Amino acid sequence: MSDPSMTTTGTMTSTRSLSYIALFAAVIAVFGLIPKIDLPFGVPITLQSLGIMLVGCLLGPKRAFYTIGLFLVAVALGLPLLSGGRGGIGVFVAPSAGFLLGWWVGAVVCGLCMRQFMRRMPDAKGKSLLIAAFLSSVIGGILAMYLFGILGLMLAAHLTLVQASLAVLAFIPGDLVKCVICAVLVQSVVRGMPAWRLDRD
């Protein structure tokens, strides 16, 4: 016979996971409503990729996968959730479509990296936690994301690898700033909610 307490615990865990997935998908959508920020060197940045980094670092790879999937399904259904009020199937065939797939992969990679960092240093706090979250954000939120973004530009806009790479190069400083912000926010969550698990699957 199955243990009723185990069934109840499993149901609570599933409900909590669904709540986190819906909450963080909404956070990404809210970040898309924030107007672009013009950096001093003339390059505008939006905050939605910060949401991708946070999803990966805080929820882990599995929940990150479902969160970004939920968000992209909502976009595909026509909800104007992307920065600038964009939505619909058309955004998935635009030159920037590679970045949307990159968001999905990048969030999972962030989660995988964060999980490995935290399992190697389970008592990480302060500076070590900041470094772990920053590195996870760089690897998933920049390297993985830009890989798919560049490939998307090459296919959709018929650019060479060099041309596509140069086209996105100017946005990297802004994304590095977002990596720092992500690390600070992750540390703040851990301080405010000590039971929050950063090594989750």
Rank of each mutant, 00 (worst) to 15 (best):
M118G: 04
C113H: 05
S136I: 07
Y66R: 04
G149C: 04
W196R: 14
L77I: 01
V105N: 00
V180W: 09
C113T: 12
L185W: 08
G174F: 06
L169S: 14
R119S: 11
L54Q: 01
M53P: 01
G141Q: 01
F99R: 01
I45D: 08
L161E: 04
Y146D: 05
L143Y: 04
G32Q: 06
T8K: 13
M12F: 09
G10K: 11
I172F: 11
I68Y: 01
A164W: 07
G192M: 14
W104K: 03
I68C: 07
P95V: 05
A167C: 06
S83I: 12
P80M: 11
D201Y: 10
A157F: 08
V180N: 08
H158T: 06
K62G: 13
L59V: 08
T7P: 06
L155Q: 09
L198C: 14
Y20P: 02
S49C: 07
L79W: 10
M121C: 13
I131S: 04
L130Y: 12
L72A: 01
S2A: 15
K127N: 12
A74Y: 01
A164Y: 05
A124D: 14
I52L: 06
V138K: 00
A74D: 07
F41M: 15
V55I: 15
Q48I: 04
F171T: 15
V184G: 07
R119Q: 15
G149N: 03
R16T: 13
A29R: 07
F148A: 03
G60I: 05
I52G: 02
Y66T: 06
I52N: 02
S96R: 00
A132I: 10
L185K: 06
S14H: 13
L81F: 02
P40K: 01
G32A: 13
S128Y: 10
T7I: 13
G141F: 00
M193P: 08
I28G: 04
T8H: 09
P40S: 08
G69E: 02
G126W: 14
F148S: 05
V108M: 09
D38I: 12
G102V: 00
P122M: 11
C110V: 02
A133H: 04
G98E: 00
L82G: 05
D38C: 08
A195K: 12
S14K: 12
L161W: 11
G85T: 14
